[in-house]
Design a protein around this nucleic acid. Structure first.
Length: 744
DNA sequence: AGAGCTACAATTTTT
DNA sequence: TTGTAGCTCT
């Protein structure tokens, strides 16, 4: 294994194999290369055995890429090595031993749509309305609890004094109970239950602890408390834990990622060796300067400064457009122009935005100019109705206890089992504490159900029974064909989408695509069971479709993490859109910091050319409002930017925007009128009239209002700097020249 | 059971 | 503005 091509920091990261290592890998600093080289180095130069290595990533893509590159470097296969995502690693552990904590080993995995259905069922059972307890909110609360390893019991205890949260704790408890009864785990459970298993069963813990002598975790800034705990437990014996990440690229806090994991790694482990990878191989120095400067406004971070050998470079170009249509036209015109003049291919361009809704006008513009593009995001393959139906059949065949899937397909295609009948079956199932399927099998003994419905149910049970025997002898792809055949599913599609329409054809194509996925699975997988197939389906989101085609990429900044493009357009650089917020005022500083990290991610996607655009007024969700330039625009260093507009276009800058404009702006994002929104609006109007006169009243002891931080008390003054103790946000030093402070 | 209507909500989403 | 979940009427 030759390490000569690495830079000194990279080399250090590779060679320091023993003990805890924290690799702070800035954007574009070659961390995948470091990780793969490190694994190869362990095997080749250190004589480590493949089974003793565990490498964890977040995405399948990253795991596959890592495996491929390790294989390439080593020239041997890596089957013995665990290189996988958190989730599939956990599934592997659980499939072997989850029975030790009372679960069925052939559990199935519920996706977020299944979660919604299950939560709705739980609400019904508890007689709670889904208005008061929105399933989405309930799920994210439960998910947050699991990410923090809080059991339903603990969660209940923690929220004793809060009636609402207490109710959510009850839902959580019932939800877990139902999952278990259905032999199902949700995504969060995969991690949570693995931790539970390792905590409760010392034999299992011992087994993996001694096995995994070298552990590596990629994207460590994105780990949750539960994932942190998992890793900590596994690394306990050997302490050879190497985590790689970039705190500045932590953008999934809202999904349970806890940035403290990376910030406090040095406290959590003894004698941590820290390596910073700061040399960037991707972008020009100008782009890096801009990124460095913007991110330096964050307080909560590890200091790092990216540098490049590609000195200078093009200035960052800023364009103010009248509205989103002009903005999009600008983008498409520039793409056409640059493609022509610099002879670039379309795949060199990316248009990045904060919210998916922004893609629409860009699409229109690109269509008008006949520029090919690819949109990333949107409905995923496995979320389409026909695919979900088919998966539900497969799940029931695999695991008849899955009530959620039973309910999905019992009358799809229609076989005359109506809502009333289903309800009766459900009631009986919950009375007898059994699955719906066992009630269905025993339907003849059920006298409340009409003979007609009973016959339909028997036929359904027979169908499932037959398919279950087919499963034992045929491969998955054949089984799928049999499902479609015996249920007359294609006819059902024709019926639903009126035969010869485009839509019907699309849907049928999807089903065929699904069969090819199954065939591919059979060819590439060792374990060809239906169980394994369903696991794979649950743990992958994209169907590996067309990519390497010459098209412009449109995606959110989140999706762009880890990618790079020669020319990048960051669009919609406006307050409220980026940083985004429903109510700017309530936005905590830590949320703004995450938005800023997102901005950093966006900027660092660009290799050579970066455009940033914003509008004077934007129509979003059918409402038009004047825009305020994003605060991040002001954070860009002046020497790195070039304004493209010939004549200065009028746009309110963030620091000039006064309290009123911001407030008006806030209302835009408060679509549903809630009481506090109305209250703040009224306050703002009243205050406006007194604003001018009371500037001198800003003095120690005075109560003031700050547009961003809310109400606080002045505790000190120095020149134009006012130190204010805010009620919510703590003590801050504010320059009164740049903000509008209102004395209350 | 199914069409058609209304009301409502609309960050980000690796698994 | 657009998508969809849920409801009503046939």
């Amino acid at each position: 294994m030759n390490l000569d091509t690495l830079n000194p920091a990279q080399r250090e990261a590779v060679e320091k194999t023993e003990g805890p290592v924290l690799i702070l890998a800035g954007a574009g600093s070659g961390k995948t290369r470091v990780l793969t080289t490190r694994i190869a180095h362990l095997i080749e130069n250190k004589g480590v055995q493949a089974p003793n290595i565990l490498a964890i990533t977040f995405t399948n893509k990253a795991a596959n890429e890592m495996r491929e590159r390790v294989e390439e470097t080593l020239g041997s296969d890596t089957k013995e090595m665990w290189i996988s995502t958190f989730h599939s690693c956990c599934v592997r552990i659980l499939r072997k031993d989850i029975n030790r904590i009372g679960y069925n080993r052939s559990f199935i995995i519920y996706d977020s749509a299944d979660q919604v259905t299950l939560v709705k069922d739980c609400l019904k059972e508890l007689n709670l309305s889904d208005k008061a307890f929105e399933p989405k909110v309930v799920i994210s609360t439960i998910s947050g609890a699991k990410d923090k390893l809080h059991s339903p019991k603990e969660f209940k205890q923690m929220h004793m004094s809060d009636a609402r949260m207490s109710k959510i704790a009850d839902i959580y408890a019932l939800y877990q109970d139902r999952l278990k009864r259905n032999s199902a785990l949700d995504f969060d459970d995969l991690i949570y239950k693995t931790v539970e298993l390792l905590r409760t069963d010392s034999e299992v813990l011992e087994f993996y602890r001694s096995r995994f002598k070298y552990i590596m975790v990629d994207e460590y800034q994105d780990t949750s408390k539960a994932q942190y705990e998992l890793i900590k437990m596994l690394a306990k014996e050997h302490q050879n834990i190497c985590v790689v990440g970039d705190d500045d690229q932590s953008i999934y806090g809202w999904r349970g990622a806890d940035i403290r994991n990376i910030l406090e790694f040095e406290k959590d482990y003894d004698d941590v060796h820290v390596v910073k990878l700061e040399q960037n191989y991707r972008s020009t120095q100008i782009i890096l300067d801009a990124a460095n400067t913007v991110i330096s406004n964050n307080i909560e971070r590890k200091r790092k400064k990216l540098w490049s050998e590609k000195k200078e470079g093009e200035l960052i170009k800023i364009q103010v457009a009248e509205n989103e249509v002009e903005e999009s036209d600008f983008v498409s015109d520039m793409i056409a122009k640059i493609a022509r003049e610099q002879n670039r291919s379309y795949k060199d361009f990316a248009v990045l935005y904060r919210a998916n809704a922004q893609a629409r006008p860009v699409e229109d513009a690109l269509n008008r100019s006949q520029i090919p593009y690819n949109i990333y995001g949107g409905t995923k393959f496995y979320e389409r109705k026909e695919i979900k139906d088919l998966i539900a059949y497969l799940r029931v065949i695999q695991n008849p206890q899955d009530d959620i899937s039973i309910k999905r397909i019992i009358n799809v295609p229609r076989r005359g089992i109506g809502l009333r009948t289903i309800e009766k079956i459900e009631d009986r199932a919950s009375l007898k504490q059994e699955s719906m399927y066992s009630v269905l099998i025993d339907i003849e003994s059920n006298s409340d159900i009409s003979t007609k419905a009973r016959n339909s149910i028997s036929a359904f049970v027979d169908t499932i029974g037959t398919l279950r025997t087919i499963k034992e002898v045929y491969p998955v792809s054949k089984l799928i064909e049999k499902v479609l055949e015996t249920t007359d599913y294609y006819e059902y599609i024709d019926d639903l989408y009126k035969g010869d329409t485009e839509e019907a054809k699309d849907r049928k194509d999807n089903l065929k695509e699904f069969i090819s996925i199954a065939i591919e699975f059979e060819q590439s997988s060792e374990d060809q069971s239906l169980e394994e197939f369903l696991t794979g389906v649950a743990l992958t989101s994209e169907s590996n479709e067309e990519e390497e085609i010459d098209k412009v990429s449109l995606m959110t900044i989140h999706t762009s993490k880890g990618l790079e493009f020669p020319v990048v357009f960051l669009i919609g650089m406006e307050e409220g859109l980026f940083p985004i917020s429903r109510a700017v005022r309530s936005m905590a500083e830590s949320d703004i910091e995450e938005e800023r990290r997102l901005c950093y991610v966006g900027i660092t996607r660009a290799k050579e050319t970066l455009y940033m655009t914003l509008t004077q007024k934007r129509t979003l969700y059918g409402k038009t409002n004047p825009s305020i330039a994003s605060r991040f625009m002001e954070e860009l260093p002046k020497e790195c930017i070039e304004k493209l507009n010939k004549e200065e276009k009028q746009i309110t800058s963030y620091s000039k925007a006064n309290y009123n404009v911001l407030d008006k702006y806030k209302q835009k994002y408060m679509t549903n009128v809630n009481k506090s929104a109305v209250a703040t609006k009224v306050n703002a109007t009243i205050k406006d009239t007194t604003k001018e006169s009371n500037l001198d009243d800003i003095k120690p002891g005075a109560k003031v209002h700050h547009p961003k931080f809310g109400v606080g008390t002045v505790v000190g003054m120095m020149g134009s700097d006012v130190t204010i103790a805010f009620e919510k946000q703590g003590i801050k030093k504010i320059n009164k020249e740049y903000t509008t402070l209102d004395v209350l």
